[in-house]
Every structure is written in C-alpha cells, then in structure tokens.
Design a binder for these strands. Structure first.
Lengths: 221, 221
DNA sequence: AAAATTAACCTTAAGCAAACATTAAGTATA
DNA sequence: TATACTTAATGTTTGCTTAAGGTTAATTTT
C-alpha cells in the first residue's frame, strides 16, 4: 500500500512517515503542491494524505486538480482549521475524509484502514480476457470462473499487478513465497505450468511469456 | 428525505449536519435524549442517527422509546469501538444498523443510502432462502425459524452483510470477536461448523464457501 | 552447418504438511 | 446451574513441495 504525504512542516512529515512505515506502508512525500501534483500524474498511490495549507498550490485546489484525472484514490485532508465550512469544501472538492490537527496517530491509522477496508481490493485486475476480482477471490476467463488454489491465485495476481514488467525468479520467490535467500527450487515452474493449464494459455501465446534465464512477464496483446 | 441527528458532541453534529445537507438531506438535530424523544413524537423522520452516549436518556432507552410508537423509521447507531458488543443490545431494541466510530463520511452516506434503498420495513438481510431479521433477532430458512446462539448469529450476520466479498479469518476475528492481534485459534471453524449444521448447508453448496487459507464468503446463487 | 552437449524450462506424480471439519471435554457467563 | 463459548484432540481433505524424466533452446564441438 503506497501512501503519498503532502505536507510542508518537516516535523509532521517525519512523524507521519516514520510511523506509517512502521505500519507497513510504502511512503512518498511532497512538501509543496506542485511537486505533489507532478507525483500524482506519474505514479499511482493507494491513498493521499493532504495538508490544507501547503506552498505553491493550496490543498483544496490540489484536491480538485487530482480529481480531474483520478476519481478513485482516497484523499484524506489534514487540517488545523476546524471550521466546518472548509471541511465541506474539501468533501465537495472530492476528498473522502477529513481529520483535524492535532490528531492522535492511532486515530489516523484507523481512518486509513477504514478506507482500505472499503476498497477491499475491488480494483479489477485484468489480462486480456482474464479478470481477477480480489474481493470475491475469483478468476474469470471469458466470464467463466476458473478455480485456482491460493498460491496459483497469488502468483497470477502478482504477475498481472506487474503487467508489462519482467518479474525475475528471485523477485517472485521473494514476493510470492517470501523466500529471501538464494535457493534452487522448481516450485515456480510447477505453478506456472498449473496456471497455464487451468487458464488454457499455450506457451507460444504471449499473455504470460517466459523470459529464459530471467523470469516471466505478463502482457495484454 | 428528513434525517434526525441525535448527538451531543458539537463538532460531530456540525460535521454531519453540513455534510449531509450537501448531500441533499433535510436535517434536524438534538443534543440530548429527551429533546430527541420530543421531536420524534411530533415529527416524522425518514431516518435517525443516534449516538450511544447522550445526556438525559441514553441511546438504548431512547431507541426503545421511539419503537413503542414507531416500528418503521430506520435507526442507525453511532458507536465507539469498545461498545460494539452492547450495540447488539441496540439492534435487539429495534435499531436497524450501527456504524463504528471512527467512520468516514463516505461510509456513513453509503449506509444511509442503503436504508433508503430498501425502505419499506426493517432491513431484511438474506442469503438464498435464509433470512435474517436484525430487529427481531431471528433467522429463518424457508420461513422456518432456526435457533442460533449469539455468536452464531453475529457471525452469520457478518458474512451476509459482506455478501459477495471474501471475509478473511483475521477480519472475522477482528470484527466479530474483537481480537485485534495475531492469534491462532479454532473458534471460527467451530462456529462455521455449527452454523452449517443448524442451517443444513452442505459444504459443497456454495452459499457459504470456504476459501482455503483465506477465509469464507457468502453468496446468493 | 550438423551433431553433441549443456542448461533452462516444462510436465507429471507421489509424499507430506498445512488447513479445515468435526466432536467432545473443559471453562466461562448469564 | 444451564447455556453458550473456547480449547483441545482427532480425522479428513487439499494443495504445496520435491524429485525425476522429458522437452526445448542455446552453446560448443566436430
């Protein structure tokens, strides 16, 4: 889960960054509005924490600007102003939630979790005619359900989440199997075989391509 | 659509009032139980948001009092995390739903819409031929009443409220048992077994499906 | 350039461990 | 003290991993 923190006060940034890192989130920070906007146009975040008062572009305008292209990513406002009017402005501009300074760290984490809970990973992953619904935990090919085991599901999801990028065998072992050391095993091959078989993907088809002596890559055609 | 907000904390009242006004609802507020009761006797509301802890009359008694004359108007409890267990009392007392603090504004609006969507009585949860009446605390299968214990009821309700979404074992432990740490226990299995047995759900039937090494999912067929 | 060699990958099947189902006994609760 | 909840023990199923043999592709040798 990748969170963007947009805040200019260094103390708060460090506090949030360190704390949220410990919670297991990947963090990127921006200390002014224009830098933040640039980041949002080139990267995908799972959630944005946005201070109301930031240099160059104010939080409200930044929120509106982000929402032009992206209606989905949850935006939570951090603000010292506790007047209701501005809350509403923020919500109208497309923010999803609002938290008043000073806030407890626990409170913030709770709020963040709420937003991830609702999302439930409902973003639909796809690869050609293959669709993955994470919240239902099903895989469809041409709208027909394909039963995969847990590991098969995880591996396929991983490849599709990294669509267009080569996944090396070591990366796969690390991210799917949690094996962080050099280890010669054939599991990946076995599972790739199972996935291709169940999804009826011929090897010469390029949806999932073998990169010999490197790894695998998933690609729409 | 006219909503009554019963809450004593001014900040929350204002936040809710303005936010819901923006959503197009007509809003009336009351900051204590007796004032709220008076309002309900002289006006008709389409929905009531009710804090658990309010001055003069507590939320639970107020709920009961309202239900003497009026069985229809949806009542949603706003409740702090650590009183969820008591909220079940609230549901028995005639509330239709509850929402845990802290909640996101979005989440609240979603819940409100759900109640307006299926208006025409208390919200009936269902799964195939299984029906749950939250206000009566009753489970029916093919119109025949099935006696469930409290925990069984809560677990089944939870699964059906999240129909179509996978409920992980950790989520279930957290939301039904309020166990927020990693803990190896077999309770879930025992209760799933009891529910399936009492409702005569065969494992190979997909109303409640086991997702191995993830959790369970409820589904209409 | 063809054949032989090697290395990486594909495929299959069997053993084994983990996850789940089920039952019963112990513990808490109302 | 009876009912419901939890833990523990046992049985069952599922699927992960290993291992072994077959295939393909790249490299080296002839």
């Amino acid at each position: 889960m990748h969170i963007l923190i947009v805040e200019d006060e260094l103390g708060i940034v460090q506090f949030l960054e360190q704390g949220l890192r410990e919670e297991g989130y990947k963090i990127t920070t921006a200390n002014d509005g224009s830098k933040a906007f640039e980041l949002t146009q080139n990267h995908k975040f799972d959630l944005i924490l946005l201070d109301w008062m930031i240099p160059k572009i104010n939080g409200l305008d930044l929120c509106k600007a982000i929402r032009i292209k992206d209606q989905k990513t949850p935006i939570i406002f951090l603000t010292a102003k506790d007047t209701v009017r501005e809350t509403i402005e923020g919500l109208k501009a497309g923010a999803n939630d609002y938290i008043k300074k000073p806030f407890s760290f626990e409170e913030l984490v709770e709020r963040i979790k709420i937003h991830f809970r609702n999302k439930g990973g409902s973003e639909a992953l796809s690869l050609g005619t293959i669709k993955i619904d994470l919240s239902k935990h099903i895989v469809l090919k041409n709208d027909e359900e394909i039963a995969l085991t847990q590991r098969e599901f995880e591996l396929l999801t991983y490849l599709i989440q990294n669509k267009g990028k080569v996944c090396t065998r070591n990366q796969i072992l690390k991210d799917v199997w949690d094996i962080n050391f050099e280890y010669d095993t054939g599991v990946i091959d076995v599972f790739m075989n199972a996935i291709r078989k169940k999804l009826k993907l011929k090897i010469e088809e390029d949806y999932i391509k073998t990169i010999r002596s490197v790894g695998y890559i998933a690609n729409d055609l």
